[in-house]
């Protein structure tokens, strides 16, 4: 099921900005490197993180923000279990001026 997600924080700039509205799809496969995903925060599972997949392997993946100097990510909390990567951010539907598909990065 498609979920509507609001972005909070600025660690994914310039790709995603604080307040952007996104559509996310449940992830039933392994995440791929370069994708923007929603994952449960390993330190607070009720909270969802929005980060980019930097590496995948052995049941876990490394998640990083696009702006390392303004991001708390796998560098601090370590790799995230693939089972905790719950969705895949695919499309921005607001603001309308930046409407569009989200691009992967290598």
């Amino acid at each position: 099921m498609l979920r509507r997600v609001a972005v909070a924080g600025s660690s994914m700039e310039p790709a995603l900005r604080d307040g952007d509205w996104l559509l996310a799809l449940p992830l039933r496969r392994s995440p791929r490197v370069g994708e923007v995903v929603l994952a449960r925060d390993p330190r607070a599972p009720e909270r969802l993180l929005l980060k980019r997949v930097a590496a995948v392997g052995d049941g876990r993946c490394t998640l990083l923000g696009d702006r390392p100097e303004a991001s708390t990510d796998s560098r601090q909390f370590g790799p995230v279990a693939l089972g905790d990567v719950v969705a895949w951010a695919v499309f921005r539907y607001a603001p309308l001026g930046r409407l569009g598909k989200l691009r992967d990065r290598d």
């Binding site: 509507r4 924080g9 994914m12 604080d18 509205w21 929603l38 993180l49 929005l50 539907y93 607001a94």
Partner: peptide, 14 residues
Amino acid sequence: LLKPSLVAYAHCDL
């Protein structure tokens, strides 16, 4: 209707 139902944190812990 369009308002997101979830918040995802592209955050920094500070």
